[in-house]
Amino acid sequence: MASDRPAAASAVRKGDELDWATIGRWLRGEVPELSGPLNVLQFPHGRANLTYLIEIGGTRLVLRRPPFGKIAPGAHDMGREFKVLSRLWRSYDRAPRAYAFTDDHSIAGADCFVMEYRDGAVIRDVLPDELRGQPDLGRRLMFGVVDAMADLHLVDPDECDLGDLGRPEGFVARQVSGWARRWELSAPEGGTAAEAMAQVGERLAATLPATQSDGIVHNDLKIDNCQYDLGDPDRVKSVFDWDMATLGDPLVDLGTLLNYVPDASDPPELQGAVRYPPELELPSRDEVAARYAERTGTDVGGVTWYLAFAKWKTATVYQQLANRALAGDSRNEHNAELSGIVPALARVADALLDELP
């Protein structure tokens, strides 16, 4: 790989190797203009899907495939992600363009797709040097995510041939029932966490909010699924991880983002659970919700339910990732620790539901 490789990419983790010769032949067949030797690096920061940087000659592409091992029903849907990214880029410039998809598992061991590579920075626990010293940086970065979310929700799905991406009617109810089933499949036997999670699921189902509008829902839009141009911290350049995208209630996305905004009221187990550079001063959850309301005209007065749902859903995802790590299906050593956060997330979700009128 060239010496100017992206700072976020590194050597492929042991155990995450694929059949690169076969992948190279497939890619050259799908994108005939590609020529030259194939080199591969990996973007190692994601907790689930495997993402690789592929260079053929002077062309860089990104390959995505699900993690190894048992996959939860409906999760890591590469076909869905390809469908979204092969169409959405026409109406939403923050969506990278996808070029090729295959469900032939002899190529990469699972469904996979290839999309364009974009250069830029993803903000995690270390701030890029180029952004240091920028005034009010935390607020600018976070409001950039809010604006990217608002612009997505204002896209007409039919204009980019995504009107069949999902069934908006009954979306929120299906989200609750679907994640309840995922929890049942991943829950540890016995213990207070299992009881608390089941109780929160029942309370969410009994207090479903009325949907104000429908739109394209990303389903995991947060700051480290976004990319910035280092010269423009006010605007998100790219949004990644579209494998759960669908049509439905956009406030589900807002609840997800609020879940990832740190708050002093969070219990100790949740402090630091989301990675941000420590020097960033971020806006409050109320400020994030107000920015979204200003950009979209949406009434966010009932967003507490959506935040509670996001906490509960995140707890389920953490348990799934912990189970994969304990089963030896994940090479991310930190995932095994995530089950310890589940009880705190369940308690916070339950307390948020107490605030509903």
Rank of each mutant, 00 (worst) to 15 (best):
G201T: 11
A293F: 04
A273R: 07
E189A: 09
M244W: 04
E202K: 15
K222A: 10
G297P: 04
D232L: 12
Q271N: 11
N225D: 00
G255K: 04
P262Q: 09
A187K: 01
T246E: 04
D266V: 06
D224Y: 02
Q227W: 02
A293D: 08
D266Q: 13
V252F: 08
E189V: 06
N225C: 00
D224M: 04
R291G: 01
A193T: 15
T246A: 04
D263G: 12
G248Q: 10
T207A: 13
L270T: 12
V239R: 00
D263V: 08
E189L: 01
L185D: 07
A194F: 01
I223V: 11
L208N: 09
W183I: 12
T296E: 06
A196N: 05
G231N: 14
A289Y: 07
L282V: 12
D220R: 04
E189G: 02
H218T: 12
R235W: 08
D241H: 00
P283G: 06
D241I: 00
R182A: 10
G201L: 11
S186D: 09
T192A: 14
E281C: 06
P267V: 10
K237M: 06
V261I: 15
F240T: 03
E287M: 12
D266C: 04
A245C: 10
G201A: 08
P268H: 06
A210M: 09
A206F: 05
T296L: 09
L185I: 06
D263S: 14
D253I: 11
G297Y: 00
D234K: 13
G215H: 05
I223S: 02
D224L: 05
Q199L: 14
A187S: 05
C226Y: 03
A264N: 08
E184M: 08
N259H: 12
G201E: 07
G248N: 08
A196C: 07
D214P: 01
P209S: 11
K222Y: 06
T207L: 02
V236F: 07
R181E: 15
W242L: 15
D243W: 02
L254M: 07
G201N: 07
G272A: 08
Y228S: 05
T192D: 13
R235M: 07
L280V: 06
S284V: 14
N259C: 13
D232H: 11
D234Q: 10
D214M: 01
R203P: 11
V261M: 15
P233W: 02
D253W: 07
G215E: 06
A289W: 08
E189N: 01
P268T: 08
F240P: 03
Q271P: 09
S186T: 15
D229N: 01
W242E: 10
A290H: 03
L254P: 14
A210V: 15
P262C: 13
Q199T: 15
P262G: 14
A289S: 15
P283L: 01
Y276L: 11
A245E: 02
V236N: 07
L185C: 02
T211K: 09
D224R: 03
D241F: 00
W183T: 06
A206D: 14
I223W: 01
P268K: 10
D286M: 04
T207D: 05
V274W: 03
D232Y: 00
N259W: 04
P283W: 00
T256E: 13
A293W: 10
D266R: 11
